[in-house]
Nucleic acid binder design. Sequence first.
RNA 1: GCCGACAUAGCUCAGUUGGCUAGAGCAGCUGAUUUGUAAUCAGCAGGCCCGGGGUUCAAAUCCUCGUGUCGGCACCA
Length: 602
Amino acid sequence: MSAIAIKYNDEIVDLVTAEERGIEGEAIELDNSPESLDVLRHSTAHLMAQAIKSLYPDAEFYVGPTVKEGFYYDFKTESEIGEGDLKKIEKQMLSFAKKKYKIEKYEISMEEAKEKFKDDHLKLSVMERIPSDTVSIYKQGEFEDLCRGPHLPSVGLIRYFKLTKIAGAYLGGNSKNEMLTRIYGIAFATKEALKEHMDMMREAEKRDHRKLGNEMKLFTFREEVGAGFAIWLPAGGRLRSRLESLLFKAHRKRGYEPVRGPEMLRSDLWKTSGHYQNYGENMYFTHIDELEFGVKPMNCVGHIKVYEDELHSYRDLPLKYFEYGVVHRHEMTGALHGLFRVREFTQDDAHIFCTVDQIEEQIIEVVDFVDKIMSTFGFEYKMMISTKPEKAVGDAEVWEKSEAALIAAMEAHNLAYTIDEGGGAFYGPKIDIKILDAIGREWQCGTIQLDNNLPERFELEYNGEDNEKIQPVMIHRAILGSFERFIGILTEHYAGEFPMFIAPTQVAIVPVAESHKEYAKLLSDKLIDINADSEIYAKNDSLNKRIRIAEKTRVPMIVVLGDEEIENKTVAIRDRRTREQYNLSEEEFLQLIQTKVNEVNF
RNA sequence: GCCGACAUAGCUCAGUUGGCUAGAGCAGCUGAUUUGUAAUCAGCAGGCCCGGGGUUCAAAUCCUCGUGUCGGCACCA
């Protein structure tokens, strides 16, 4: 196999450019390495543009880069293009690929380029953003495109690709601009790699929590209830309450006090906190007796009122209040997505009131807490520190000090983190925790945020050693983020096969015949005593069928009870995964379940 | 919010270019069967075809306005 490009000083250079510049380097072959795929996908994007141009001659093109999962091209045409047209475009691409057009390159001045693409206002706007005086043009067959490369030597090398999605996208990523059509695709060097990728996509689809949530009866959404409002069904309710009680204990162990603020508060308070001005368009309001109330989008104000309930000494700090706070946020319709993005959700929210000197140790404590939970579920995660944004309140010194405290906490404990410059909240810097799930996707869940703004606005204080009034620091933190999103992620992470300690039902009991129902009920009661839920499959169906149904519910353990078991006081256990069967005495069985249910503590 | 697609029974889906009483499988109910590890048989019931308006002799099907869902974009304190 021959090279498709070379690597020159860490730069990927295509063959035409290498020749033009008279340089040599390590050969890059057409394979599934990241460098090679990048070139391949970029050229596939161009091939797609060529196909689109031939099918829709009025099409104008914006940019067509490669991205993490393939490539896309943004363009515009007067014709309506829908999902059904992707096949047609793919076909055209293949026919061009068969012609094995050489991909040629030449350079022209910016002026010439502007003349050349004068009818393509999108290309012109691309050129606006290029500082250089000359630009390169890549040509394949009749099709020419402004591009800096690198590209394959020939479109004939493009064989294994698929157009995956069609969607709208704002020009330049700005919602004030016009909307273009975007087609996404994927390409690989080999047929096998493409197939593997498509298989993985199908696997991800099978894990989709919306699908599993429906199948497993965890939760539902209903048109008449309203968009973004989840309804928790019994199975989901059981799972959720297990998570809640585990987490409740974990908070108590760490000195958090449970508190609760009201669901809606007078708007005056939201004006004091600044939410009215800064977040008002996402809030739900109601008017009662001439007064305006705002439904809480966050729990901070309630916790501040808890703090204000009594005078505090420096000796009391840190104070940690937590609440499973139900919040409402009017998210934009297009943002809603299963349990991942809803309009009403419950945060595992806490606020820590502490002195400036305590920030570091408090951050560390929270980070440890996070680590405990994430490792229990087998999640890897990343932490990202977001610093002062352009639009920020509070004085610069405090900002610096807070940011330094976050970084110091990370450094002191050798924790890996990245920095998102300017990505903080307007009131303070934060650490975001991003979960990597079983199939490598990232989810933003927990967050730890320093806040000097609210203590200032509400004039919070405590008495210092010399009886002077000092303003405390407030740390907002959530670990799961919200039960909704976290359970959504858990569902996909485990593909619905929840481990015993969190599963909606721990055991499925299948009595062989009518006469064994009584023993089943007895066992079920004993399971409740050890905090395990079970379901008895005693319907008038064949044994095979009931086992099949039990299997399909993804319950972690199935036990079958018949004459033998009753006689010997044993249970026949069927392992879901291996389909193997083995017997345990009732006592051993209960012991096993008890261990498994309690094996986890955060 | 924007671009595009979609909405038929509890669930998953059929339903020709507008044309008879809108179909199937699973789930549900009633029987029969009482089962030893992934679907026993038979019968029954179940629909304002997402909601308003319209076009037409005739609308699940066409138009329109909503609502909701999906794929992205933008948003995400």
